[in-house]
Write a protein that binds this DNA or RNA. Structure first.
Length: 271
DNA sequence: CGATTTTGACCCGCGC
DNA sequence: GCGCGGGTCAAAATCG
């Protein structure tokens, strides 16, 4: 039986460098996947915008009296994507100013947490709660309590198909600035703002250190839901990978070393 | 004591 | 016209 060779300082340093290399490689991989997802959503966004303008052109080209009879494949496919079965409704929404603006937020929560609270940068006052027919969990109604005149409302309800997911529906736009962090009482409840997608403001943020979250104006979520396996899988894979990595103490140590190494290369990055 | 939550009553649009 | 269901109101309770 041979005794294990004791590592010299050089060997330890070499092993650490190796770990840092692995950590960097993993980071690069995650960055690449993040970029890929961003591009995917950008492409979908562009396609959606193109379809919108195409549809608007079609709609404005035909008179309102004709529009009921002259259905085109383009209109049908648009309705399928938009998920709105009412052509009239769609027509009105495109012609009128689309107010109130509606967006949906999906928040992954602890299933044991029964609170209907979705944390965000605004302060909300609850004014009602109802049990709805399509969902056994209650729906909570909130109004923005920052300004009495602020028309924004929020509905929060657990997803019927997955009770661990909170669905917050925002209606309208705030007529005031958002709360800065630390101002006002921060509500308890779910915190997870991680993957946000907004069609009204085409920005995409993937925070891979947290759980799943996305935000949209309704159409996009329906599109995602209809093509859920294709779109959601890579997001979940990235989340799982991030979760595994962040839980691994070796990775965290190596990451800290890599970051401190990077900092020393870029002293200007320090605060 | 003011702000917020709870909860039953009420309102209103929609389908039959 | 009626009933149903989603949304809102408002008084009482609770909280900080």
């Amino acid at each position: 039986m041979e005794t294990l060779p004791k590592g010299t300082d050089e060997q330890i340093v070499s092993a650490n460098k190796h770990e840092v290399g692995i950590a960097r490689a993993k980071l690069n991989q995650i960055s690449k996947e993040n970029k890929m997802l961003t591009e995917m959503v950008s492409i979908m966004q562009a396609n959606y915008t193109a379809l919108c303008s195409q549809f608007f052109d079609l709609v404005t080209a035909i008179s309102p009296s004709q529009k009921r009879k002259s259905r085109t494949p383009e209109i049908d496919s648009f309705n399928q994507i938009g998920g709105d079965p009412s052509e009239d409704c769609l027509f009105k929404r495109l012609r009128e100013d689309p107010k109130p603006k509606i967006s949906k937020v999906y928040v992954q929560t602890d299933p044991s947490d029964s609170s209907l609270v979705v944390k965000d940068e605004y302060r909300w006052r609850k004014y009602g709660q109802k049990i709805t027919r399509d969902n056994p969990s209650p729906r909570a109604y909130y109004r923005c309590s920052f300004a009495p005149t602020c028309p924004v409302k929020k509905k929060v309800q657990r997803a019927a198909e997955d009770q661990s997911i909170l669905v917050a529906t925002y209606e309208g736009e705030h007529e005031h600035g958002q709360f800065s962090q630390g101002v006002g009482s921060v509500q308890s409840g779910s915190l997870p703002y991680y993957v946000s997608i907004s069609s009204s403001c085409p920005t995409i943020t993937l925070d891979l250190t947290q759980q799943g979250f996305w935000r949209d104006d309704g159409k996009f979520s329906r599109l995602i839901e209809s093509t859920l396996p294709e779109f959601r899988r890579p997001v979940l894979q990235v989340e799982q990978m991030a979760s595994m990595l962040t839980k691994d103490p070796n990775f965290r140590t190596a990451l800290a070393a890599a970051i401190s190494g990077g900092m020393s290369c870029h002293p200007s990055a320090q605060n």
